[in-house]
Structures are given as C-alpha cells and as structure tokens.
Nucleic acid binder design. Structure first.
Lengths: 214, 214
DNA sequence: GGTTGCATACCGACCGGTCGGTTTTCTGGC
DNA sequence: GCCAGAAAACCGACCGGTCGGTATGCAACC
C-alpha cells in the first residue's frame, strides 16, 4: 500500500468506495456526541463521562464499542477523509479537463467541508493527538489527496491552460490550506451560503491560475 | 489588575509600537519553555511541571510571575499579535499604492510567521482555550488586522488595480487564512526558504487580484 | 521590617480506563 | 415452537495517577 506514489494525476486509486460498515444506533450516538463535544470544547477538554452523558449511554457501552478515547478521534478522521477521497475520485472519474476538474474539486471540497464543519474543526485542531501508527495512516490518506490535486495542477500547466508562475506544489498547499482553515471562519448561519463561498474561492484560485500572458 | 491589558483597541491605530515591557530572565525562560512545549505537545499535553523543569525553575517561580497556565498562553498570543500589528503599521506608514502594500504586507507576514512558527502553531491550535475575556481581546486585535487588510483590498478594487470578481472580504479570508495554515506545512528545513515561499504565495494572490479585463 | 523573589510540600478535583457482573439477543437441537 | 446455553450488549462503581493550583517558609534587599 505504501509503495510508489502515482506520478501523475490519473486518479490513482481514489475511485474506490469505502466498505459499508454497519454501525449500531448506540455507536452512532456515541460518535455524534463525541464529534459535537470535541468540536465545542476540544479533545482534552472533553471527558469520556461527558460523552456518555451527551450520548445517553454508559461508560461500559462506550468501552464496549471503542478501545479508547483516541479511537473516537480516529473514527471521526476516517469518516472525513474517506468522504473527501470518495468525492475526489468521483470528480476525476468524470474525466473533465484540468480547469473544470480543479473547479469541481475545490468547490466540492469547500461545500463538503462546510457541511461537515465540526469534523473539519476537530480534524485540524486535534490531529496531532493521534498515536504514531494512526497518524501515519491519516497522513498517507491526506498525501494521496494532496498528490492527486497537485497532479491536476501540473497537468493544467503542461497543457498550457494554467500559468506556471507559481509552482504546482505551492498552489496545492495554498488551495488545500485555505480549506483546512475554514473552521476558523466559516459559519453556517453567515451571510453567504456555502455554495456561494465555494464559487468565490474556487473562482479566486482559478483567476490566479489563469494563463493569460500575451 | 486581573483584567485585560489597557484595551489598545481604541481605534485602528496600527502604527503604534508595542510598549517596552521589561521581563526578567526567569520570566523569559518560562515563556520560552512554555512556547516550545506548547508547540510540541499542545497546551493540554503540557503540564506545568514540565514547563518548570524545562525552564529550570520551580513551580513557585512560575506562579510568582504568572497567574495561571492560561496566562502563559495569553502572553504568547500577545507577543505574536503585537508583532504582526507593528509590522502591518510599518508597511502602511510607507504609503505605498495598494498593490505594493498588499505584496509587502503578505510577504512580510509570511516571513514573520515562518520565523516564529512555534508561536503561530500554538496560536492556531490552542486559541480556543482562552477564557472569554482574553478571547475577546485577542479577537479584537485580530479583527483590526483583518479589517485593515481588507481595506487595502477594497482600495485597490476602487482604484481599479484589483479585480473585484472576488469580494474583498473573501480575498482577505483566503489570504490571511493561508498564513494561519502555515504551521501545518511550513518546515524551516524544507527545500524552499521562507522568503521564496513568501514571494510565491504573495505572487499567487496578486495574480488572482490582477485586473486584466480586455 | 516589609516587600520581592523564589523554594518546597502538599491538596483536592478529575480523568481515562477497568472489571465483575447483569441483561438481551442470537443460535441450533429437539 | 421451545428452550438451553453461548455470545453480544451493556452497566456503573471504582482505581491509580496526574494535574493545576496553593500555602507557607525564608533569604535578600530596599
């Protein structure tokens, strides 16, 4: 699994759909409560007791389904990354030209992040709490996304539709970085809808990428 | 004097220089140790005992100079924000046209953030831990920066040197957001110098802002 | 002789996780 | 259709340990 990375944005293996994992109602309640509380008070600021009370279950139930408090975090990360990779794969499968692909990926990512802003908040704030094994797994997934996205930019630059004034790596860092930053400024009840913001931000990035030399 | 500093938010007077606060050597050692540990293990992952050991002082010394662990965080934030506002004021005082101002502010902010990446890391990750009074103070300072920056964009748009395809508010969010995200990707020992990255990123943003209609 | 600048011993709250036990659900032999 | 027994689901009191913060002492200096 950890072999050579796909050199080009041909999509790698991002088109796979996640295995359908059945979760019991209790599991769901625990996960939902954990997500809400982690987002609100942070991982360390949330006690296991607080989670079980919010989920209206007992501690025994929680530790029956999960190994540890960290386990809850990992599950949250996993669901976020799985969804992002699935969305990415879906767009790539459409086989659009780079410019439309980048727009679709970015706008979709922003909309999806807005829709699951709690997960994004927890993710960006508490990622470092994972133990090293899980951290490696999460990082590998993120890297796949990063490399695939960068591949799109590179392809557009080779095709001449994107300016190569800024290296593809920097463009990727900047574009994905602003999405990761969303939890600090996006408000669901703000004046702009997520779709509007997604269009504005994607438009901004594409404006910077536009090849328009004489 | 348990409350906040004399609210320096009396106006958008970003050109003020920070008051020269004298700090004892012990204070400095404590602050430095706290910064390093917070950046490395997070606020909650760092015990007060750990800080005093790293600083080679005792708990009594720490609580002699600081009211609480949170106090240390606040001091770290303060030094970061003070520096940012001072830098911003300095650029504004030069009275450059919007395009050059934006470039100077952004590139300077990125370089400064790179240079104090630990502070930035702690800031972005642990801001939410502040109590509400201090949170309000920090937010007010950040807002001043935000509003001032947005003013620069708006001015450029009014002058016709910047495209108004993307609202100034969104541009500001995106531009400053990518700086806040730096701790997650910037490495001092990476292949690119901070100055190079600053130029690339500032160039990217300016490319998106360029007014270039036919 | 009081104020500053520390040192040391200690406290009570809380927290993640465990463990022995009980209830509910599933399974298959009759 | 029924029942026994195994497995899964769940309960909640409890524990060892850590952590932020405090109380008190004391030496040096104004």
């Amino acid at each position: 699994m950890t072999d050579t990375e796909p050199a080009l944005g041909d999509g790698a293996d991002v088109t796979r759909s996640a295995a359908p994992v059945r979760v019991s109602a209790v599991e769901r309640r625990i996960l939902d409560a954990a997500l809400t509380l982690f987002a609100e008070r942070g991982f360390d600021g949330t006690s296991v007791q607080g989670i079980v009370e919010a989920a209206e279950v007992t501690k025994g139930a929680l530790y029956h389904y999960f190994d540890s408090k960290d386990d809850l975090l990992y599950e949250i990360y996993h669901s976020l990354i799985d969804r992002q990779l699935a969305d990415l794969g879906e767009v790539l499968a459409r086989g659009l030209p780079p410019r439309e692909s980048v727009r679709a990926v970015l706008a979709g990512l922003i909309r999806s992040t807005a829709e699951h802003i709690d997960e994004a908040k927890v993710f960006s704030r508490e990622m470092h709490r994972l133990d090293s094994a899980r951290m490696r797994s999460v990082r590998a997934d993120r890297r796949r996304y990063h490399v695939t996205f960068r591949g799109l930019i590179e392809q557009g630059q080779r095709d001449g539709v994107f300016s190569d004034a800024t290296p593809a790596e920097t463009v990727t860092i900047v574009a994905l970085g602003m999405v990761n930053q969303m939890p600090s400024w996006y408000r669901a009840d703000g004046p702009k809808t997520a779709g509007r913001l997604a269009d504005e931000v994607a438009g901004f990035v594409l404006a910077a990428l536009d090849q328009r030399r004489v």
